[in-house]
């Protein structure tokens, strides 16, 4: 069965439980960070930070109204993951339950996935020289009997992250969309790379949250990368033809 997670920033209180729970389950190191006045810290995803909370503060001077948005950010776990298609060593697997996982034993650190991902998710580690990213806790989720929710979802106090069968989650997303008069990102309103396993329900435009516009198809660079090796075929044919003609010419020369 396919599962999904509903991300509901309107319910998020920015406590970063997900950020820490993720590090705990996945045994990730704490990073050495510096003061960040925005509070998003670690400021970027990394090999050791699969997920973090982004903080966005908006202030309307005239109305003296403050909006402070927090939202969980990590791999979207696309249906057709660009990273997977870009990987030259098949180190990335899409599980039928939803998770897209990098097998770091197979990873060779070529960074093709980094360049392919339209969300900027996979992260290269300079110590191990490998790439890693959120696994959607595939070791908890990808079981035919009773999957266990990902660590981030389990830890969320306000159900701003909700795990369940994809159909149920989509239904919930529709309900919340109506309540918020908002927008669903990841499915329904748009389907980045065929639809994602983490689905956002937003009270406003995705751009307000800094979410990129991603088409349903793989970004052009991925098939180009993937199919470029077929240039070897015309090259081989061309080379063969060239050699044949060259040999003919030589034979002729010899005869002469």
């Amino acid at each position: 069965m396919e599962y999904a997670v509903l991300v509901d920033p309107a319910k998020c209180i920015g406590c970063r439980a997900c950020q820490v729970a993720c590090k705990r389950w996945n045994n990730r190191k704490g990073e050495s960070t510096t003061f960040n006045s925005e509070w998003t810290n670690p400021p970027k995803l990394s090999f050791n930070t699969y997920t973090h909370i982004k903080f966005k503060l908006e202030y309307n001077q005239a109305a003296d109204e403050t909006k402070w948005r927090f939202f969980n950010w990590r791999c979207m776990h696309c249906k057709e993951p660009a990273c997977m298609h870009a990987c030259p060593v098949n180190a990335i697997t899409k599980y039928e339950q939803g998770p897209v996982v990098v097998d770091t034993n197979r990873c060779i650190g070529c960074k093709f996935c980094i360049s392919a991902c339209p969300f900027g998710i996979p992260q290269f580690d300079t110590v191990t020289e490998k790439v890693d990213k959120c696994t959607m806790c595939y070791d908890r989720v990808a079981h035919t009997n009773e999957p266990k929710e990902p660590a981030c979802v389990q830890s969320c106090p306000t159900d701003a992250l909700l795990f369940g069968p994809r159909d149920t989650i989509l239904q919930k997303a529709m309900e919340r969309k109506e309540e918020l008069n908002g927008y669903v990102y990841g499915d329904i309103d748009n389907k980045p790379l065929g639809g994602t396993s983490f689905i956002y329900v937003l009270d406003t435009e995705p751009s307000a949250f800094g979410l990129p516009v991603v088409g349903e198809q793989l970004p052009t660079s991925v098939p180009v990368l993937k199919y470029s090796k077929f240039l070897l075929i015309p090259a081989a044919i061309g080379g063969l033809l060239y050699l044949i003609s060259w040999r003919k010419r030589r034979m002729k020369e010899k005869e002469e």
């Binding site: 990335i92 697997t93 899409k94 599980y95 039928e96 998770p99 996982v101 990808a142």
Partner: peptide, 8 residues
Amino acid sequence: GQTKPSEA
């Protein structure tokens, strides 16, 4: 594309 195992 890659195979999609169901157990992990």
